[in-house]
Nucleic acid binder design. Sequence first.
DNA 1: AATCGCACCAACCGCTGCCCA
DNA 2: ATGGGCAGCGGTTGGTGCGAT
Length: 322
Amino acid sequence: MGRPPYCDKGGVKKGPWTPEEDLILVSYIQEHGPGNWKAVPTNTGLMRCSKSCRLRWTNYLRPGIKRGSFTEPEEKLIIHLQALLGNRWAAIASYLPERTDNDIKNYWNTHLKKKLKKLQSSNDSSMSRGLSSNQSISKGQWERRLQTDIHMAKQALREALSLGETNLLTELMKPSNGSYSSTRPSQPATSSSATTYASSTENISRLLEGWMKNTPKPRAAQANSESTQHSISKAVGTDSSSSEEETASVANNGRTAVPNLFESLLNFDSSTPELSETSLFQCESRPSSEAQVPLSLLETWLLDEGFGQGEMELIDMPLGEF
DNA sequence: AATCGCACCAACCGCTGCCCA
DNA sequence: ATGGGCAGCGGTTGGTGCGAT
């Protein structure tokens, strides 16, 4: 129906956010918490629509966001979840609490799609040499193979963990240096926009530091602000905190802390109380909205110890629908 | 050195669903 | 029951940087 576009009002700024705007937004959210986005432009004086503010926060400024290349376990998890859930990036992102749906979506579109295409084409050629086609695989076989793949992903996670939690987190958090480096690891922070932003964000970091020292806040906001500052500092590589802090749980905004997540992933207990018919997709809404990521039926299925055991011969089956 | 094409990602757009009056 | 307002989501686009030619 003809509802006018929400951000169609005149005088609404579009385009990249400036560090100053970021600072204003972060400061406001630290004080008031995320939510009630409609009030944000009004109360902050930002010439942005509420939607833009929300996006900027959830995709960039929100504490606990991991920036940097995707690790192999993450990659596998995304592939499997995409096979299971389709392009429901928010649902997928709920299993990777440090990644935003936007990030995952971008990563999928720019990296994984191609990767899988390649994989598929190479597989097609092997199929033409006598292997059965995807389409001819029975549903049961398909599911079993998928389960095997998932089991392997899980295995990879566990292996990573077995190196020690710190190592895992190091792995999971690398490079945590503020700019995406997935396929451009050497991209210098000297690219014009990056430079401008990085240096300005450094300023934000410093400003926030001072601001936090001087501004008394409610407890919740304070906790939030610390992690936010940490996040921003991290994002610009100015974080001087110890590695302990680095690996410390970043329970912020109700999002599941990393160690907790992996604890939940790896110590999965099938007697999870949340198990219910309706729980299958209960993680679809962003975990940023309050609760810890509950273990859903899907997680059960994904991570159940018993799954995939003895099915290792079914590895590397290409995932269809890519 | 200049140009072109590609890759990447932040941000926008538009739709959907939920909540509330 | 209904309609408006808002948040959330997925698809798409535009700007920027890099590498190849």
